[in-house]
Write a protein that binds this DNA or RNA. Structure first.
Lengths: 217, 217
DNA sequence: CTAAGAACTATACGACCGTACAGTTTGTGT
DNA sequence: ACACAAACTGTACGGTCGTATAGTTCTTAG
């Protein structure tokens, strides 16, 4: 099997293979409408493909969903370090701790808004117990929780975050950031503002920092 | 039409009417599996009722969903003051601001866990743009946002919360509390702990307070 | 007791769901 | 040019979805 699922026409990898196009369409729909709300036919239409082809590539809807989640999580894991590494470069040159944490939080928030598929896809299933959640937990969440906790503890050792229970703090920060993405459609409708704007995000982070910051001095 | 949808056998309101039993079953399923994941048949089975009866009482699945959401939101609006009033009584007798805010947060968290249906039902649709979300926004969220913001601002006037943007703070606090309920199934699986336990909630609140508190002194 | 309306049920229908499977096209190595 | 496999399509099937509608049982007022 080819490692790069793209048509290798000419030199550069030009357009993605039909298989990845299906996965992308599936990610869009699963993230927006959930597993039950997304029919194979709808996914096929969005990908410009017959639904038989989806079955050919992925055998069943469950396996398509697993492949989709795997891809989105992989994209997320690929992208996340880029966001954090940039913050880490800042961290070396500038030495203002206050600014560092703010930058980190903003990058995480920016990341959440840049990868809404990940946030939505996860939360579509996260709050619904069942075999799909079980699969995600064993496949991704368990490791991710450990990584997140380790990151918090590292920040705590460097006096960047208050020394409270790392897991609870992880949930509070995750909640404060991800919740914003999750209710963004509502906020947009109610307030008329677009939460996915540079200005709104800056204000949100400023507020979060105003809460976090006194602890650090 | 009767105001109290219960069979008025004898004096006290004994068992609920079939209509409310259907609504309760619908709330359970909609909250757990979402709109698309819950079939009328499944709801009927859970309520011990034929699906024709659901159609008789509610005409269509959409109207059943609206009636369900209305009921759950009403239950929530009925219950919420009880939680907050108790905190308000505490607020008068004891005068330690630190404790007051902690108590308030804990009551809100306890409330979220006591009424998981509300949290889940809202978030099943909250992140999915569409006619159902539009309906909820106009029917409930717009007013609720205003109330929440007013509550934050009141607390700010009393120096109970830091004076930052009220709407952002509302989102951060809501996120920190509701997120915990939303990912509780995951947390339970990953850590082996039950987030819906007195001990876990206390730790979570302690962490939140440790972040919020320095601001108040 | 009885008529009338409310509450509840049985049955059917078209649409769409996910899946199975045979058939066709396209690409590739020789 | 040929063979063969991979990629892709057409079609059909059983099942469940939400809904429509006629029929039955229960409640209750007169």
């Amino acid at each position: 099997m080819p490692a790069t699922p793209t048509t290798k026409t000419s030199a550069g990898q030009k357009k993605p293979s039909r298989k990845t196009e299906i996965l992308q369409a599936a990610a869009d729909l699963f993230a927006q409408l959930g597993f039950d709300g997304s029919s194979i036919n709808a996914i096929a239409n969005r990908a410009g493909v017959k639904k038989s082809l989806i079955q050919y590539h992925f055998d069943s809807k469950d396996l398509l969903w697993q492949a989709t989640v795997t891809m989105v999580w992989q994209q997320r894991n690929d992208a996340l370090p880029r966001y954090l590494d940039e913050a880490f470069i800042q961290r070396i040159t500038e030495n203002d701790q206050q600014y560092m944490v703010r930058d980190l939080c903003k990058r995480l928030l920016q990341f959440s808004f840049d990868q809404p598929q990940w946030v939505r896809l996860m939360f579509q299933e996260a709050s619904t117990p069942g075999p799909r959640l079980d699969w995600m937990v064993e496949e991704f969440f368990r490791e991710d929780f450990a990584n997140g906790k380790a990151m918090i503890e590292l920040a705590q050792e460097r006096e960047l975050l208050p020394r409270v229970d790392a897991m609870n703090l992880l949930h509070i920060l995750s909640g404060a950031l991800i919740y914003l993405v999750n209710v963004a459609p509502i906020t947009a409708k109610v307030t008329g503002e677009d939460p996915n704007s540079e200005e709104y995000m800056d204000r949100h982070i400023d507020t979060l920092m105003a809460i976090l910051s006194p602890q650090l001095r």
